[in-house]
Write a protein that binds this DNA or RNA. Structure first.
Lengths: 231, 231
DNA sequence: GCAAAAGTGTTCCAGATACACCCATGG
DNA sequence: CCATGGGTGTATCTGGAACACTTTTGC
């Protein structure tokens, strides 16, 4: 078979990306979802997504979708997996590549998000989503937990300065269980990626909790190599 | 935007599946690869793959490709991830979904494989593969190791009856390090998924090693729930 | 002065690791 | 009888888990 016929005879498909966008705010793990604008299922809740364009990699497509919705770029994003069932999209046969992203809610453009009809909802408020988007979310949560066991990705969700109780709270949200204060503190400080600041955050207690910042160099070294970071 | 234009205006893409097919034979972890039949890169080594057809899910496509090449079905297979770079295939823009499979070499159809120009090569013999197939293989190896830490998938690669030294050997191949005989034996037997047979395999020693078979019920319970199975 | 959250060490236990000798048998 | 790979038990160490009281300060 010639090159021509090999590629020319193959069927072509619509390919989309869908983004599971996690954030952390008010001590809750949240998800950014939108009201779908087009039929079928117009008006229903949906992950943010879009079609992969000609000359655009799937990674780039996911970055673009995220940027268009939240206004930010250069954020943590990983491919989850491809969803390729024939009938998953009731409007047409669409193969979707799902990505999950971790963003600092404080740093994103709320106005832009609102303009796109996007909303941050905490995990227990998540409604029925269109198509297989609830499955995607579940898979993303599983992946997030797996990933967090060996990589300190939790930091991607926090503002630049944060307190240890905040960080612990984040992991409690991710794993849906309480964590021992002392053990958590011990383990996290042992990683030696945190810089303790003089400032305190008194918003949640009279005594105030020390603010920390992570040491970007040490942090990225760990993030790259992968650390055992069981909580 | 109407349903019509939303889906109709979106670009369509060639979508392929590529399979990283692992096997285990003669104490070596092996990979099934073929000589590519079409240009570009005709004659070069390649993973087995094919285009996703209309009305065919990506999972089904991977199953079909595997069946066509090896003659077997109902085997362990998982999606690895999607490879979506624009220029990854030099013949055309093709988005590929990679799958990895674990098969018992003894049970597959060698004649069929040969007819397709397929060859089993052990890991250290793997040549340069086309496109991004070497990356896919590396990613699959990483995934295999991760998966094997918590799921007893190693069994998928062995014949029905196997000896403990064989099983240990398999894990040594997967992890590329030697494992302590006694500790391995202790841990594997503690899982309580093995049935010891009376027969011995004397092909590798005068004394002979006991053959084992795994208890399918207990095995699948573990495989489903996921076990901590650190070696 | 008291309520409310932050911060701090030690003990215990389980599971991982390290390690050396005897066994069975074919040649 | 000996070479070869199979099979077995124990001591040690490390890291995770459990656990309660003191500190600070705004009200």
């Amino acid at each position: 078979m010639s090159l021509e016929t090999f590629y020319k005879n193959a069927p072509r498909h619509l390919v989309a990306v869908d983004c599971i966008i996690f954030g952390f705010e008010d001590g809750k793990l949240k998800l950014l979802i939108i009201k779908r604008k087009v039929d079928p299922m117009a008006g229903a809740w949906s992950l943010v997504g879009g079609f992969v364009q000609e000359g655009e990699s799937t990674n780039d497509a996911a970055g673009r979708v995220l940027r268009q919705t939240t206004g930010i770029q250069d954020i943590y994003m990983d491919q989850l997996q491809c969803y390729g069932d024939v009938d998953r999209d009731t409007g047409a046969r669409v193969i979707s590549v799902a990505y999950y992203a971790l963003i600092r809610i404080s740093e994103h453009d709320r106005l832009l998000a609102n303009a796109h009809g996007a909303h941050w909802l905490s995990m227990h408020q998540i409604p029925e989503l269109i198509f297989d988007h609830n499955s995607m979310l579940n898979d993303a949560l599983t992946r997030l937990r797996d990933k967090a066991r060996f990589h300190p990705i939790g930091f991607e969700l926090l503002p630049e300065k944060f307190t240890l109780p905040q960080l612990r709270n984040l992991y409690e949200e991710i794993y849906q269980r309480t964590l021992d204060k002392r053990n958590f503190r011990k383990k996290i400080l042992a990683l030696d990626i945190l810089e303790k600041l003089e400032e305190k955050d008194k918003s949640t207690s009279k005594k105030g909790a020390h603010l920390y910042r992570f040491d970007k160099k040490k942090y990225s070294a760990l993030a790259d190599h992968g650390v055992v970071f069981e909580i």
